[in-house]
Design a protein around this nucleic acid. Structure first.
Length: 986
RNA sequence: GCCCGGGUGGUGAAAUGGUAGACACGAGGGACUUAAAAUCCCUUGGCCCGUAAGGGCUGUGCGGGUUCAAGUCCCGCCCCGGGCACCA
């Protein structure tokens, strides 16, 4: 009987569902193992072969752990709130819940086809009210908490209120406050507090709550009409869609993640996560140790506080620079400078983040006219404003040391400010000296000290003078939490007299209301403001919704107890399942999800809801599956800007006056044209259009135009030269360096690639996706699973190449054939031979070790080796095939299940005990030693394995061939590495 | 600029300091077949010697070093991928 993947796979998937094979109970009597995948956002495009890579890996581990006696939690769900569904809704009017539903059904179907061992009874969806009830509940806990920096722990806000009522607040107690404080918060006494109106009290408390409302600088994206968190902005544009982002000050819900900065940093050391992810998080948190230095103002009372990591360079300070946003700018500027300074501040503030970034090189600033006093020398130091100083970091002011900091040097040079050399051997005429192993040379008590010693000395002095203190700064910002959007969790807050109040727990879930349109209101309010009666007891409800990362920051807990109505998960369930043992997902979440995930876990732990404070012990990042893309280069005829209804040809000169010409002529013309000139100078890009075309329409660098137009009707209006059904193209035909095009035979319209093939991320919009359904249809899910694992190391990104799949497909057929002789099922109970046992146990050993290391590509190779060996031995024996079937089951569950039942078992192979390998079968009778003379291998000799190194040495030297090589001389040295090699040094 | 990864055949890749290139794809040759598909066998890093059996040299980005022995360890470069970035 032939291996019929379709019949087998369908049969077993139905059977697993019927039997509930993968249902998991919270069975406390068994050891647990929790394998979690990052759940997907169900997009309209469906899955491509890149998506399941991590799921397959985690499924193998989950199945392996089941065979090894663990009670395995291996769930799946959907991160189903998000932007694309909402944007689709805006365009079509279709409710996002509907499209989400449809997309989930499609995802489920595709996932099911791959044969995962998920327990679907535990599925979660973040957009489901039963789920987001608890997301809202956690939000309320955060709202109800403050961070006690002395005990490094979040506590109920009621405790803080009690403290205030009893002791008041000492105000500027540095370090007790973190994050973006709405206003400078002065000290107050207990009596003050008790006398405050509730409104004022609540206002103060906002400065302490972990979820808080404040007037804050936010990343505002006008195109998306919403605020974005820092990790959602890349290079000044939105991560989704690439729209420009500006800084804007507005009332905003935020999460005080900064309170946890140090703990998020410290916690990394103990985690079994990849070094690159940990490093990315460390960078993002950006801890730096330094000093807070106070410069007394000359004209008015008060100080300018600056943060520096280099107090050793204090004697090199020649000016102080404030960020344009700095509140002192207005205070200190004398009236005669006011106009000029404020004009600068206004333009600087209005420059978008993107402009500011792209114009990093441009130096701009203005002198305020005011001075401050140097804490060591007592000299006057001029105060400048410059936009190279960031308002959001440190104190928003820096002491400028042009001799020791390149940015200060640039500023000083531009404005002709004095530059003092701070280090020995520095050439301050050319650049600043930023070396951290130099010796201080500036006049003063630090002269002659090495930088590290000078830092200590300067620090001590600052503390003594009361002019500064040690300070640790973090780059991490509080996370913007409110989104001006519809498709997200409503924030359970109502406003009484403009003061935010928590909605009572009994009112949860606060269900997303129906609205007539998913757009902002005419006066710019978020979509929820369109809902009728969006209020609680007559008080208006919050109209922004939570960001995408809210629901995904705690979902691993819900899987433990998904139906619980009274708690996000029962204490018993949490105590049993504990942390995720293995978390698998993409590395693109390094500074987003994975940080928030850890933050919420730490918070819930602080408040006593969890017995652990890190969500996942081990994290593995699967690499991206990339794909070859096919592009053609088109030149647009006509003016710029019109993208629709425009004709395309290979060559156009920017006018409508063109004539079709032969390919080689057009190429020649193009190359000699000034358009080409212009294009490569980066100008007139409007004429140049690079279009991704479906990879399946390209064969041997020749494009099948009719087929392409069926998939890309948007190109229907294009005119193609030589469009007799075929069209030339190549991978990146233009060699920009050599500035030439390599043309094959002009008659066949073929191009030879001059550059590497184009490899990019698999994506629907790039027309380079491979759908797993098509692969499964042709080869089966088991083949797909094996092939995805075989492609290469899990963590590495690698290009998909469907051709290679034949190898794994052949392997499964060969494996199947071990159970058959001339198409008749035949497995004998005969005792296996030594060689057969060896093939089996070598495989068991390698596969067992490989799964522990998550090195699946090498396991698959080992299976192939075993099947080749057993095929050659014509081994059809139960004692070999049965353990091998169990070992293969995690990788290829369907075929394993079928063969398991053929072996006479009525239960699922899932319950079979993992076969142990036995070293006795791997021991050889003899060993072939390569004999090297002076490191060059000359001959092989065989010896019994039992010989020790000394005996081998003696036997080798006694060998006549060796003796003839030695020509009677005694070797200087003989090295025998047991069972490996003999090296003779002559 | 700083911080992490990584560089091995035509390709994806293996290799506790111990015979580099396992396994697979692709390519070439052959068997079976009326033919095709499927299957099976042989060759396949490069160069060289030999009719053949076989043998030699060379080879893991580049240059040094440690070692009997280096893809692997150390030092210095080059290149590629990723993270952070006017962060003081």
């Amino acid at each position: 009987m032939q291996y019929d993947h379709k019949g087998i796979e369908e049969k077993w998937r139905a059977e697993w569902r019927k039997r509930g094979t993968y249902r998991v109970e919270n069975d406390m009597s068994k050891p647990k193992y929790y394998v979690l995948d990052m759940f997907p956002y169900p997009s309209g495009a469906g899955l491509h072969v890149g998506h399941p890579l991590g799921y397959i890996a985690s499924d193998i581990v989950a199945r392996f752990k089941r065979h090894s006696g663990f009670n395995v939690l291996h769930p799946m769900g959907y991160d189903s709130f998000g932007l694309p569904a909402e944007q689709y809704a805006i365009q079509t009017g279709q409710h996002p819940a509907k499209t989400t539903e449809v997309n989930i059904a499609r995802y489920r179907e595709q996932l099911d086809n791959i044969g995962f061992s998920f327990d679907w009874d535990r599925e979660v969806r973040t957009s489901n009210p039963d789920y987001y009830k608890w997301t809202q509940w956690i939000f309320l806990q955060l709202f109800d908490s403050w961070y006690d920096h002395e005990q490094r722990k979040a506590k109920p806000i009621a405790e803080l209120v009690q403290r205030f009522a009893q002791w008041g607040w000492s105000g500027g107690d540095a370090g007790a406050l973190t994050g973006d404080v709405e206003e400078e918060l002065g000290p107050f006494t207990a009596n003050d507090w008790n006398a405050f109106e509730e409104r004022a009290q609540q206002r103060i408390l906002q400065n302490f709550r972990l979820a808080y409302l404040s007037e804050a600088w936010v990343n505002w994206c006008p195109a998306l009409g919403t605020v974005l968190a820092n990790d959602e902005v890349k290079d000044g544009v939105s991560e989704r869609g690439g729209h420009p982002v500006e800084r804007k000050r507005m009332p905003q819900w935020s999460m005080r993640i900064t309170a946890y900065a140090q703990r998020l940093l410290d916690g990394l050391d103990a985690l079994d996560w990849s070094e690159s992810i940990k490093e990315a998080q460390r960078n993002w948190i950006g801890r730096s140790e330094g000093a807070l230095v106070k410069f007394k103002l000359k004209e008015v009372a008060g100080d300018i506080e600056v943060f520096t990591t280099r107090p050793d360079t204090l004697f090199g300070v020649t000016f102080v620079t404030l960020a344009p946003e700095h509140e002192l700018v207005e205070v200190i500027t004398p009236p005669d400078r006011r106009e000029e300074v404020m004009a600068y501040v206004t333009t600087a503030k209005n420059r978008s983040e993107r402009e500011r970034m792209t114009e990093v090189k441009r130096v701009s600033g203005v002198f305020t006219g005011a001075y401050c006093i140097h804490p060591f020398t007592g000299k006057e130091v001029p105060i400048w404003v410059g936009d190279y100083v960031l308002g959001g970091y440190g104190t928003g002011a820096v002491m400028a040391v042009p001799g020791g900091d390149q940015r200060d040097w640039n500023f000083a040079t531009h404005f002709g400010l004095p530059i003092i050399a701070v280090t020995e051997g520095a050439d301050i005429h050319k650049e600043a000296d930023e070396r951290k192993d130099a010796t201080i040379s500036s006049e003063g008590f630090l002269k002659g000290l090495k930088v590290p010693d000078a830092i200590k000395r300067a620090m001590d002095e600052l503390v003594k003078l009361g002019a500064g203190e040690r300070r640790i700064n973090f780059r991490l910002r509080d996370a913007a939490f409110g989104r001006q959007r519809y498709w997200g969790e409503p924030i359970p807050i109502y406003y009484k007299d403009g003061v935010p109040h928590a909605l009572p727990e009994s009112e949860l879930p606060l269900v997303l209301p129906e609205v007539d349109k998913f757009l902002p209101t005419e006066d710019g309010e978020p979509p929820l403001a369109r809902a009728t009666n969006w209020s609680y007891n007559g008080h208006p409800l919050e109209t922004t919704t939570m960001p995408g990362w809210a629901g995904s920051s705690w979902y691993f807990l819900r899987y433990m107890d998904p139906q619980n109505e009274g708690r996000f998960a029962s204490a018993d369930a949490i105590n049993y399942w504990q942390q995720v043992d293995l978390y698998v997902g993409g590395s693109e979440h390094a500074t987003g999800h994975l940080l928030y995930f850890r933050f919420w876990t730490k918070f819930l732990n602080d408040r006593g809801w969890l017995p652990f404070d890190e969500p996942a012990k081990k994290l593995v990042n699967q690499g991206m599956i990339t794909a070859f893309s096919e592009r053609i280069l088109l030149y647009r005829i006509g003016g710029s800007g019109e993208s629709r209804g425009t004709s395309f040809i290979l060559y156009g000169d920017g006018t409508k006056d063109y004539r079709p010409i032969t390919l080689s002529q057009s190429v020649q013309q193009f190359l000699s044209s000034d358009l080409h000139e212009k294009y490569f100078k980066g100008k007139e890009r409007d004429h140049y259009v690079e279009v991704n075309i479906p990879t399946e329409c390209v064969h041997d660098d020749v494009v099948d135009i009719p087929a392409m137009l069926r998939i890309r009707p948007d190109l229907n209006d294009a005119v193609f030269i030589a469009s007799h059904g075929w069209y030339w193209h190549g991978h990146n035909q233009w060699d920009i360096e050599r500035n030439e095009l390599v043309v094959g035979q002009s008659s066949s319209f073929r191009f030879t690639s001059v550059k590497e093939p184009l490899i990019e991320k698999m994506s629907k919009s790039k027309y380079n996706v491979t759908n797993p359904d098509a692969i499964i249809e042709k080869y089966g899910a088991d083949t797909l699973r094996l092939y995805e694992m075989f492609l290469g190391p899990l963590e590495q990104s690698k290009p998909w190449d469907t051709n290679g799949i034949e190898g794994t497909s052949r392997f499964l057929k060969k494996f199947w054939n071990l159970f058959y002789e001339s198409d008749v099922y035949s497995v004998s109970d005969e005792a296996p031979t030594k060689a057969e046992f060896k093939a089996l146990h070598a495989t068991l050993k390698k596969v067992t070790e490989d799964i522990e290391r998550m090195s699946f590509n090498t396991s698959v190779s080992q299976f192939m080796i075993a099947v080749n060996q057993l095929g050659e031995l014509k081994c059809h024996k139960r004692d070999v095939l049965e353990p091998l079937t169990i070992a293969l089951a995690p990788f290829a569950p369907h075929i394993a299940e079928e063969l398991w039942s053929k072996l006479g078992h009525t239960d699922s192979v899932t319950g079979a005990k993992w076969p142990q390998w036995d070293a006795q079968y791997l021991v050889e009778d003899n060993f072939s030693y390569p004999i090297s003379f002076n490191g060059k291998t000359r001959m092989q000799l065989e010896f019994p394995i039992a010989l020790d190194a000394k005996s081998v040495e003696a036997a080798v030297l006694a060998n006549p061939e060796v003796q003839s090589r030695l020509e009677g001389k005694m070797p200087k040295k003989v090295i025998v590495v047991p069972k490996r090699i003999v090296n003779i040094v002559v």
